[in-house]
Write a protein that binds this DNA or RNA. Structure first.
Length: 208
DNA sequence: TGCATGATGTTCT
DNA sequence: GAACATCATGCAC
């Protein structure tokens, strides 16, 4: 249920990210992403994510091999990969698996638990609360993340961007389905979201 | 409630 | 030069 009080757990360790991206993605549901900027602390509970496997995944930016843009994805796990989308939007990923494997998890939507004022300052007065961090570009804005945050460690002490353990989401509350906004590898069900959560962007059912 | 569309610029062919 | 891991708006129903 929305409004559940979630205690902030400890930072997720680097080993958490050193696994297959689909496993990391599913386990990130319910985790808390925290950013610190001049505007203050913003904390968001993840409710929607997508996994991208790298060179074996035709929908991944790294499908055709390393490029300057995708360099961070080939590095160690537990770092941010931030890219510029459609000439307007920034999107935030977390790098998975060991060096040489370009897998990552796209953070698509969350529920703002703390720092609503800071988020409103960035998003404006129009969106209702449930939409403040709904959609990958909106989530990035809510957290104050842009290209300058690319390659940042989320597992280092004192980082401006951290991921904290949250209340786990049980399998009964996880919906898996096709990823959003892609044209290749559309059959891979690597989008995961919390069932019946109003902050989820896009389709809310698995099959379609 | 749901779909079509314009805004806008980087990346890679 | 085409494609693109998006969003908000406007209009039809």
């Amino acid at each position: 249920m929305a409004g559940t009080e979630v205690e902030a757990g400890r930072r997720l360790p680097r080993s958490f990210y050193d696994r297959r991206p689909d496993v990391v993605a599913r386990d990130l549901l319910g985790a808390l992403v925290e950013s610190r900027t001049d505007d203050g602390v913003v904390r968001v509970r993840l409710v929607e994510v997508e996994a991208y496997a790298g060179e074996s995944d035709a929908a991944s930016h790294a499908w055709r091999g390393p490029t300057p843009r995708t360099r961070v994805m080939y590095g160690p796990p537990g770092r941010s990969y931030v890219y510029f989308s459609y000439g307007m939007h920034w999107c935030l990923n977390l790098v998975c698996e060991g060096e040489g494997r370009a897998s990552a998890v796209l953070l698509r939507a969350g529920e703002v638990l703390e720092g609503v004022d800071a988020v409103r300052a960035r998003r404006g007065p129009r969106p209702p609360d449930r939409r403040l961090a709904s959609g990958p570009a909106n989530l990035a804005v809510a957290l104050g993340v842009d290209g300058a945050w690319d390659g940042l460690s989320v597992v280092a002490r004192g980082s401006a961007l951290r991921v904290l353990e949250g209340a786990p989401v049980g399998d009964a509350d996880v919906v898996a389905g096709p990823r959003v906004g892609i044209t290749r590898a559309v059959g891979t069900p690597w989008r995961f979201h919390v069932a019946d959560n109003p902050c989820v962007s896009g389709p809310r059912r698995a099959g379609g």
